[in-house]
C-alpha cells in the first residue's frame, strides 16, 4: 500500500476533472459547435444582413447586433452547458459520483463545472467574431479591442455558467425543458443583445426590465469594447455588475450543488 502524503492533491484533482470534461468535449466537438453556432449564425444573417440588404433595418445595425450576439452566445453558452449536463448527472446517469468521491472538496467540484461552462461559453462567443465579421461586411474589430472583448466574454460566460448551475441544481430533469423556455426566452430578449440599452430611454419600463438582466451588461460591455462610438453603458459599470452577479450566482450555485451532491 502506498503511503499518501498528507497534502491533498487539490490542484491536480481539479486539473484532472477539468481535463476529463475537455477530453469529452474534444471528442464531441462537431455537435458542440453545431449547438452553439447555428442559431446565432441565422440571427446574424437574417437580422444583420438580409433585413439590412432589403432595407428594413439601417446599414449600421450590424454594428449593434454583432457585439450583442457575441455576448448572447457567451452567456447562454455558459448557462446551457452548465445547467443541462448537471440535471442529467444528478438524476439518471450518476456519472458525476466518481468525481464527488475524489479528494476534492465538493465546492471545488462545483467550481470546476462553472469553470468548464465558462470555457465553453467563451469558445461559443469567440467563434462568432470571425463569422460575424464575414457575414456582416460593414463591421470591423480593432485588434486592440480583442483582449478586452475576451475579458468581457469570459466574465459574461462565467455569470451565465453560474446562473446555469443555480438552474441545473434546482430543477429536475422533467422540469428542465419548461424552465429553459420560461427562463431563457425572456433572458435572451431583455439582454440588450439586439439594441443598445441607453436607446431604451423612450421605453422606461422596458429599460428597467433590461437593467435587471445580467446579459444586458455583457452586451453593453461588448459594445463598449467593440463599437465605442455607439452610446453604451460605461465599461467599469458593466464589469462591476457582472463581477457581483457572478459572485452571488456562483455562491448560490455551489450551495445548490452541495445540496444535490450529498444526500
Amino acid at each position: 500500500m502506498t503511503i499518501l502524503d498528507e497534502r491533498p492533491p487539490t490542484a491536480r484533482a481539479f486539473t484532472a476533472i477539468l481535463g476529463r470534461d475537455l477530453v469529452v468535449t474534444g471528442r464531441e466537438l462537431p455537435s458542440f459547435l453545431a449547438q452553439v453556432l447555428l442559431q446565432p449564425l441565422f440571427m446574424l444573417f437574417v437580422f444583420g444582413k438580409l433585413l439590412a440588404d432589403l432595407g428594413y433595418v439601417g446599414r449600421g445595425f450590424g454594428n449593434i447586433l454583432l457585439p450583442g450576439i457575441i455576448a448572447l452566445n457567451a452567456f447562454i453558452g455558459g448557462l446551457q452547458n452548465t445547467a443541462l449536463p448537471l440535471t442529467l448527472d444528478f438524476s439518471f446517469s450518476r456519472e458525476i459520483e466518481d468525481r464527488l468521491l475524489s479528494p476534492l472538496p465538493t465546492r471545488l467540484v462545483a467550481m470546476e463545472k462553472i469553470v468548464f461552462g465558462t470555457i465553453r461559453g467563451v469558445v461559443a462567443g469567440v467563434v462568432m467574431i470571425p463569422l460575424g465579421l464575414v457575414i456582416l461586411p460593414d463591421t470591423v474589430l480593432a485588434p486592440a479591442s480583442l483582449l478586452p472583448a475576451l475579458a468581457v466574454m469570459a466574465l459574461g460566460a462565467f455569470v451565465g455558467s453560474a446562473v446555469g448551475m443555480v438552474v441545473g441544481t434546482a430543477v429536475s430533469p422533467r422540469g428542465i425543458n419548461v424552465v429553459f423556455t420560461v427562463v431563457l426566452t425572456p433572458l435572451m430578449f431583455t439582454g440588450a443583445t439586439q439594441f443598445p440599452w441607453p436607446s431604451l430611454d423612450r421605453l422606461p419600463w422596458f429599460q428597467i426590465v433590461c437593467a435587471v438582466n445580467p446579459l444586458t451588461y455583457v452586451s453593453e460591455g461588448m459594445r463598449a469594447v467593440m463599437v465605442p462610438q455607439i452610446p453604451h453603458l460605461p465599461l467599469w459599470l458593466c464589469l462591476l455588475v457582472l463581477a457581483v452577479a457572478g459572485a452571488v450566482a456562483a455562491e448560490a450555485g455551489m450551495r445548490g450543488f452541495g445540496r444535490r451532491a450529498v444526500d
Binding site: A13, A16, G19, R20, V23, D98, S102, P103
Partner: peptide, 12 residues
C-alpha cells in the same frame, strides 16, 4: 481504460 486513468488522476 480512461475510466481507470481519470479516476486515478482525480486522486492525484
Amino acid at each position: 481504460r480512461q475510466n481507470l486513468l481519470f479516476h486515478a488522476a482525480y486522486h492525484g
